[in-house]
Amino acid sequence: MLKISHISKTFNKGTINEKQALRDLNLHLEPGDFVTVIGGNGAGKSTMLNAVAGVWPVDEGSILLDGQDITALPEHKRAGLIGRVFQDPMMGTAPNMQLEENLALALRRGDRRGLRWGVTNAEREEYREKLKTLGLGLEDRMTAKVGLLSGGQRQALTLLMASLKKPKLLLLDEHTAALDPATAAKVLELSDSIIQENSLTAMMITHNMKDAIRHGNRIIMMNEGHIILDIRGEEKQRLTKQELMEKFAEISGTQIESDQVLLTR
């Protein structure tokens, strides 16, 4: 489904702030893979997701999604294939627009936007049904401005928006990190069910080891711009937090105490 081959990215090349964020990174996702991504700060997790989303062009390598080479496509041109939820709950929705308008924008992700009505009555019914499944009572506030919603509500809405038009790939960039524990749990649960119901291929970055182990069928660990660990299937199901920590220390060769601080919360 997704094939990342030998991609590299260096920021601020030739300056004192030069940072090689991705180094010859390779990753191959099968259809239906739900990968959790872990790693310390600056390991390149978000950078990898942004490279796939096309926030900026990569320096080297190629990215294939569903057989299509998207390496040279700008962000808005590959958006039709990719659903995204960001760390900042404010980033995924338009605050000055109504709930139903936000959903309508998301339903047309990647489509040509012409002079037909922005929201139709048939859609409204669909939105109402989908909003009901969130269990947040948002189905009765469809004409409210999204800016009036809480962070958790907005994040749940963004999740719904990302899957409204079925994406080839769903990218979740620490999408529960800014939420309180109860809301975070709920949004995670929701992510799980949306991914399962639509049998989506997904990548989820998290700083929480337990979440990384509990969710998805595959886990990858990143360090210094590439993948240092890739565990899937049965082995992933049996994985414990302790094992993960040990593997990390073994492969990266760094002190476990210091990384424990970075990886657990």
Binding site: A79, M97, R113
Partner: peptide
């Protein structure tokens, strides 16, 4: 709507194509 979305949240708009 796309024009209004651009003014309201340009990062989101880009992500929505």
């Amino acid at each position: 709507s796309a024009l209004r979305a651009t003014g309201s949240n340009s990062a989101m708009s880009s992500a929505l194509g």
